[in-house]
Simulated scan of single mutants.
Amino acid sequence: MRILITNDDGIFSPGIKALAFALRTLGEVMVVAPDVEQSAVGHGITVRRPLRFKHTAAAGFGEIPAYRVDGTPADCVVLGYHLLGKPDLVCSGINIGVNLGLDLTHSGTVAAALEGTSLGIPSIAFSQEVSEEELRFEEAARLAVPIAKWVLEQGLPSGILLNVNFPKSTPKGIKITRLSNHHWQDTVLKREDPEGKSYYWVAGQQTGLEDEGTDLWAVKQGYVSLTPVTMDYTAYSFKGKLEASFPDSWVATPPATASRGPADV
């Protein structure tokens, strides 16, 4: 089995190194990761400049082939797929910090798994809650192995990936969860440079409801959270109402609208 590993924290992150060494027990591992941190870049693909794809021995992966890319996590999956051959599994992480709930919309870690899924490759995103005192990923990497093994053996349905989050403490067990409303409550900080010109920092703090059964609840309770995520963003529960409001004939004979006077233009 061939496993492509990437992340958004960069090729020198301890999380990706722990994951790469752990997954060697399952097959041939290849690392393709950003050369610098690419956190919160979402599912960006670089199309307006060329990309560099360089083999590196400086990241400490030993015999594992490792390549650095001056692009996004999604770029790494695309280049790894086309330059090294289609893998049997894409694993992204282990991210420094959780990716829960609405974090998925901007997470580079999850975006790499989304890109793998869009290419028809079973994909998993791994993230870990961390403490300020230390960054330790050995336990999470150990637990990632049976999850990855299960996916290699069982596969995943088309258009579905797994989002896995580990608690910072030794896990009590594993919970199959749904996405929470966990998100960053944004604030904008205004500052001035030495010339008196304004610039801004987008900052904030994490927030969300710890509803039972959600990924946030599981991690806060000390469990590994495993959430199946679909790439089909269709709101099926709302689709019927739209169909009733906009039948096929609507374009040919749209409802009459009130005329606008000069003041409305």
Rank of each mutant, 00 (worst) to 15 (best):
I5F: 06
L216G: 05
V145C: 12
L83K: 15
L156V: 10
H183W: 02
E37T: 09
G116N: 05
P262N: 11
D75I: 00
G204I: 03
A235P: 04
L51M: 03
I121C: 12
N7C: 13
L209M: 02
C91R: 04
Q206R: 15
G93I: 02
I64T: 06
P194I: 02
W150P: 01
G173Q: 05
A258V: 12
A57Y: 13
A148V: 01
P87E: 10
N163P: 06
S118I: 00
A203D: 12
P73D: 07
L51S: 03
K239I: 13
R24F: 06
T230C: 09
A235Q: 01
G204A: 04
V110Q: 04
G240M: 10
A111L: 01
A74F: 00
L26V: 09
N165K: 04
D193A: 12
A57V: 13
D88K: 00
A18K: 10
N163W: 02
L84H: 04
L156Q: 10
L143H: 10
R68K: 13
A74P: 01
A22L: 07
V145W: 10
P255R: 15
W250T: 05
K17G: 08
K149I: 00
V164T: 12
F238H: 14
W250N: 06
L114I: 06
A112M: 05
P262M: 11
V36D: 10
I3R: 06
Q205L: 10
L83G: 03
W150L: 11
M231P: 00
K241V: 15
G93F: 07
I176K: 13
I3E: 09
L84A: 03
W150Y: 09
E212P: 03
W217D: 07
Y200F: 12
A112G: 04
